[in-house]
Design a protein around this nucleic acid. Sequence first.
DNA 1: GTCTATACGGCGATAGAC
DNA 2: GTCTATCGCCGTATAGAC
Lengths: 203, 203
Amino acid sequence: MSKSKNTEQKIFDAATELFLEKGVDRTSVREIAAKAGINLALMNYYFRSKENLFGSIFSMLVQKNSEELIRILDSDMELFEKIRQYVGVYIDMLSENPLLVSFVMSILHRSRERITEMKVISSLYSTDQFTRQILDEGKKGNIRRTDPTQIFVDMLSLIAFPFAIKMLVIDKNNFTEEEFGEFILERKKRIPELLIESLRPPR
Amino acid sequence: MSKSKNTEQKIFDAATELFLEKGVDRTSVREIAAKAGINLALMNYYFRSKENLFGSIFSMLVQKNSEELIRILDSDMELFEKIRQYVGVYIDMLSENPLLVSFVMSILHRSRERITEMKVISSLYSTDQFTRQILDEGKKGNIRRTDPTQIFVDMLSLIAFPFAIKMLVIDKNNFTEEEFGEFILERKKRIPELLIESLRPPR
DNA sequence: GTCTATACGGCGATAGAC
DNA sequence: GTCTATCGCCGTATAGAC
């Protein structure tokens, strides 16, 4: 194993941590170099620029975390079971990396210029199969609401938003980190219930 | 009317627009001065620093937009009607200023150091009366779910998150701005329905 | 109050020695 | 590959003329 690979990885890891923690704009390349324990110039030797480094990290994060979600969405699982699994896996993923929501959010905010990353995020939500499934169940009269986009946005909102306002929830309720964790854990049951109830037709 | 008041206001307005559009960190003071059509030095004459200017703007935005929401939440309106009104007013407000969610989100992300602004946001959500109401209705067996924090987070998530991922929704569905507006308009009916259905006990 | 001019430090990036 | 040194630029802030 060459030493170069180690250095590149050290830069990559340090930058990932800092970008997630403080945001890209508030992280300087000097800070990254310091945290990685390497010289500033090496930053530009391995990655051409800060922006380029950011691009690599962002792609990695999305790819790493989206694979399983896409697999669930694209499967031919029964609709309600699919919702249960999707919510569960998504929440587990965000629980392990709670900063991801804010990070993606901030990218989304500044990405009217740079479309590249948007494409990556969009790929996260390959909803074709899910959409077909909703429309199909709708036609059969098995569900009560049939707008796929609305349903998907409901689901995403209920899953992700609480992580974006984590500090607010903690502050407002005097939660410890653990209590916030329990709060989120409850939502793993709650969100599928809410969604399925909103779809299930009256008996 | 003194000319100074005009200048201060011009700086304030230009900065507000830029902060909302590009985020605080990606907006330079030179840019603000240029947009306001004034000299750079005046920026520091009226507001001591960029950070200070940001503080003023942030407080203004929160205060301006939270008053009516707090009034609704604190009123003794019947619970379901309160939910309908809160959702409606909140969505109208965000529709008029869609960038507000991303803006607040980014502040939340970088505010582990500066608690000042958190306090302002927290005041936005004075949920005491709402909480009491939920617990009360719960005791009477009038509602099926009784965790006030969960209910409030559900509501906020369904209202605000779609604005944070606006560009994604537009991109994914090939929406025009108008179509996104209609999409959001539908949610003014949809969200209260979802929430109330999730609370209403089975007959 | 408004302007010009400028100081200062930190930034991203690179040239060039080793 | 890794380092030192340095570039030019930008954001912040202030001094001082008008």
